[in-house]
Design a protein around this nucleic acid. Sequence first.
DNA 1: GTGGTCTAGACCACG
DNA 2: GTGGTCTAGACCACT
Lengths: 128, 128, 128, 128
Amino acid sequence: MISFEDFVLGDGYPIYLQIIRHIKQGIAAGAIGHQEEVPSRRVLSALLGVNPNTIQKAYHMLEDEGIIVSRSGAKSYTSVDEDTVQHIRRELQAGDTAVWVEAMKRLGLSRDQALGLAADLWEKGPEN
Amino acid sequence: MISFEDFVLGDGYPIYLQIIRHIKQGIAAGAIGHQEEVPSRRVLSALLGVNPNTIQKAYHMLEDEGIIVSRSGAKSYTSVDEDTVQHIRRELQAGDTAVWVEAMKRLGLSRDQALGLAADLWEKGPEN
Amino acid sequence: MISFEDFVLGDGYPIYLQIIRHIKQGIAAGAIGHQEEVPSRRVLSALLGVNPNTIQKAYHMLEDEGIIVSRSGAKSYTSVDEDTVQHIRRELQAGDTAVWVEAMKRLGLSRDQALGLAADLWEKGPEN
Amino acid sequence: MISFEDFVLGDGYPIYLQIIRHIKQGIAAGAIGHQEEVPSRRVLSALLGVNPNTIQKAYHMLEDEGIIVSRSGAKSYTSVDEDTVQHIRRELQAGDTAVWVEAMKRLGLSRDQALGLAADLWEKGPEN
DNA sequence: GTGGTCTAGACCACG
DNA sequence: GTGGTCTAGACCACT
């Protein structure tokens, strides 16, 4: 079962995109495998304090990408082959890092200043 | 005059928030100083291909934060004392980096893997 | 035994309401009489290719209207006195016809055009 | 401007389908022509006491059928060539009448009984 | 003012 | 219990 324990909702970014992202991160990290059970709309909606439809929208888009399969009345399961995992992993790793690098450059930091800041924050974070 | 040359609109994030962020980044980087002229709504609207109302909304929120002062009928100017600059800088640097660090951890990367990836992408980016 | 042979499911109208309507139509037409046996949930479910719960819902509402009586564990039977039959008949005949008349008026047909069209279609229909 | 003055919401039938139907009826009757202005989401939603999104859904489906054209920020207009009008007219006339005929048959009425009932109700209705 | 989208809540049909 | 759909309200971007 996919975990959403430490999931926190961000500011103005659409919730359903955050959920999609969270699941993709889990897949990329290997925490979510093939044919794994996905939390139901209601369960996840109660857990996150979000409307079931918002969950549904996220799941529906993941279904369009072939990452989830849903059958009406039955539970939903992940469907991720190794290629998909690799693709998602690269997409997230490179994408996020590029965004951060770009932001740091705009803030006027040098490469070493930025990496140093990141290294500091890495240690202070919750877990490793 | 504040530059928006390389400004690109992001995915689902509200445009007016992206503009606010862009200006704050310029202030944090020192590229935008005190009493500097802000592009008029019309100019910026044409430059970004965005509706003037959207620009207006961003400027209005920056006014509420005291970062911009508008004298009706005249040009608008920034108003950033040193404390404000420091505050914005920390907020953006630490905030963005914490988000990135968290994302990399979720993706299962080690500290060195993440920093290495960032270092690689740093060189490949547009400018320094 | 109430017949559902030629029952076809309509577009967006709730299935349980269609079932209720079908039974009321049978009663109004005299095809369904007093103390007549109602198909069991299981049988009707299989016959219509519909979930037993949906049948259950329709029957439950008919029970609330006093048109069906169920003795738990035993078969269910209709319970329609003459007044009920009359009431249902009028309701369906007048209601449906008023709706159709209204629709034809909105479509700009004259009385004779509409009646002529109906007369034509009457002959072409399946049975009489 | 398309009129919704005498529009009344029906029982369990989806509202957006009722709205679609109402507009198609107007087109079939010739009351709605080509390039005619469609009431805005807000106006119609206020008029019918319905949520703007429900109107939007109806309009969106009409747009998919090519009956309406919408441009973001601008008003929406009908787009009905003569072929479309003919097609809609037949669809509604024949469809509705067939449904009514079928219902009357199920209720056990003879052709003449049904037509007589309809003729009676025709006179009693609001306008002609 | 306009249409487009995101979030929310209730209901229907299914296993 | 599950997922699917309809209705609702607020917000965003555009004319």
